[in-house]
Design a protein around this nucleic acid. Structure first.
Length: 422
RNA sequence: GCGAGCGUAGCCAAGUGGUCUAAGGCGCCUGUCUGUGGCACAGGAGAUCACGGGUUCGAAUCCCGUCGCUCGCCCCA
């Protein structure tokens, strides 16, 4: 038997209500904030991601689905959503549009990782990007989009964490300072952190080993070591967030794994989250567009994982509306009735009304059971008697009240009311 | 990539070497109710016990490998 590849999963019809729910809320929020949808290819030139995400990152080093196509070009299944959007911005000359350009996307993303709860090799993201405006009010707006989405989804017990990681002006000095601080405590660092000290000192801050955590408390803080412009950006952002009354917490330990982030970074995490709990992450990337060969263009965005959101909706017992069932099930008894039932269901559908033909190989009893199991509000019954009189029995499955109606009259009424039916 | 646990019908599961031609529950189908659902009762279908190999007179049960899932690390949505 075949099974879905490791780390991938099927989203069965019974799961779809969560996806529809998230998609509809996200599109609603995006529309409210003036974002336009963009869809980009599932794969891109490999160099796009190597350049943007960063050569030293785990994503590029060991997680990309990279292969040579039949023409000999190296292509990569999209491991994140921001770089393709930036590529599209450049390719289509969007700097000629009114700035900033606000876009959102839904897309699958692919990373070759070890699967775990909340971590997959193919997962799906909703993300937004704002390109062409460096003002901290844009940061505040994007953070508001993220928070607005989380709260409109009905998620509770979540934290909004923000930090500033500076820019190429001030970050090197900060990293050096950090390295110096930790070097003084080399003897108590865990093995991983000793390694990190050389490769990526920022990562020392979010180590989970107790002794390293303790050191992190007194470590130099990024937000205290910003250059003048970054510092001004940071303090303005904080004042905007305050006036917007967003319940943020500054987290000096938060660093993010993609090289392109500058200044503002933020995440949304469940209060009682485990290892892979971040449900939303993003930040500013003012250097990314130039890295991809464009003129200097600031940008900021975030992405959320639909699978993780779904997990949180379920564990938080957030009520999610059911997918609508068809309004009618057409039951039938006897061979003549089967044809008449087929005809009736066709006429209803062509009139825009949801109807399914029940399996006539079952008895009426079985067909009623089916209507009940499928949560269909009305059963229509056709038998020899009804056909002879040109009528149909309409049974309200909720109240169990049923009545005979002339067939044509019924179809006309059904067609008329389908717009405002439940 | 590292460490650990797990894998019995669509789902949840009992069973830890012979009594397993594998219990029970949910769901599905049928009947009681010959043209009427939700309840109840009865019956039925559905499992090469993840896959492959080994040990043994005998394996769902022990051993090895593979695949997959889960948890922690790493990383991230």
């Amino acid at each position: 038997m075949f099974q879905a590849p490791r780390g991938t999963s099927d989203h069965l019809p019974e799961e779809q209500k969560y996806w529809r729910y998230i998609e509809s809320k996200a599109m609603e929020v995006a529309a409210r904030f003036g974002f336009g949808r963009i869809d980009t290819p599932a794969f891109e030139d490999s160099n796009l991601f190597i350049r943007s995400v960063g050569e030293g990152t785990d994503i590029v080093e060991k997680e990309m689905y990279t292969f040579e196509d039949r023409g000999g070009d190296s292509v990569t299944l999209r491991p994140e959503g921001t770089a393709p959007v930036c590529r599209a911005y450049l390719e289509h000359g969007m700097h000629n549009l009114p700035q900033p350009v606000r876009m959102y996307y839904f897309c699958p993303v692919f990373r070759y990782e070890r699967p775990q709860a909340g971590r997959f090799r193919q997962h799906h993201q909703f993300g937004v990007e704002v390109l062409g405006d460096a003002d901290p009010s844009v940061d505040a707006e994007v953070i508001e989009v993220a928070w607005d989405l989380m709260t409109s989804l009905g998620l509770k017990e979540i934290n909004l964490l923000i930090n500033s990681v500076g820019d190429p002006e001030c970050r090197p000095a900060y990293v050096a300072k950090l390295r110096e601080y930790y070097s003084g405590h080399r003897s108590v660092l865990c093995a991983d952190c000793t390694e990190r000290l050389e490769r990526n000192p920022l990562r020392l801050l979010d180590c989970k080993v107790e002794t390293c955590r303790a050191l992190g408390n007194d470590a130099p803080r990024s937000a205290d070591n910003l250059c003048e412009p970054c510092s001004e950006h940071w303090s303005k952002l904080l004042s905007y967030l305050d006036s917007m009354q967003l319940p943020y917490q500054v987290d000096h330990r938060m660093v993010r794994g993609l090289d392109y982030y500058t200044r503002t970074v933020f995440e949304v995490q469940p209060v009682n989250g485990g290892g892979q709990s971040t449900i939303c992450g993003g930040g500013r990337y003012d250097g990314l567009i130039t890295e991809l060969g464009g003129r200097e263009t600031p940008g900021i965005g975030f992405a959320t994982g639909l699978e993780r959101l779904t997990l949180n909706l379920k564990s938080g017992e957030v009520p999610v509306p059911d997918e609508p069932s068809p309004r009618y099930l057409v039951a039938n008894v006897g061979d003549n009735a089967r044809l008449a039932a087929l005809d009736l269901s066709v006429r209803l559908r062509r009139a825009g009304v949801g109807a399914i033909l029940s399996s006539g190989t079952r008895g009426l009893r079985g067909q009623m059971r089916q209507a009940n199991a499928l949560n269909i509000p009305y059963a229509l019954i056709l038998g020899d008697d009804e056909i002879e009189k040109g009528e149909v029995v309409v049974r309200d499955m909720h109240s169990s009240i049923q009545e005979s109606k002339p067939l044509d009259e019924f179809i006309e009424e059904a067609a008329k009311s389908h717009g405002n039916s439940s």
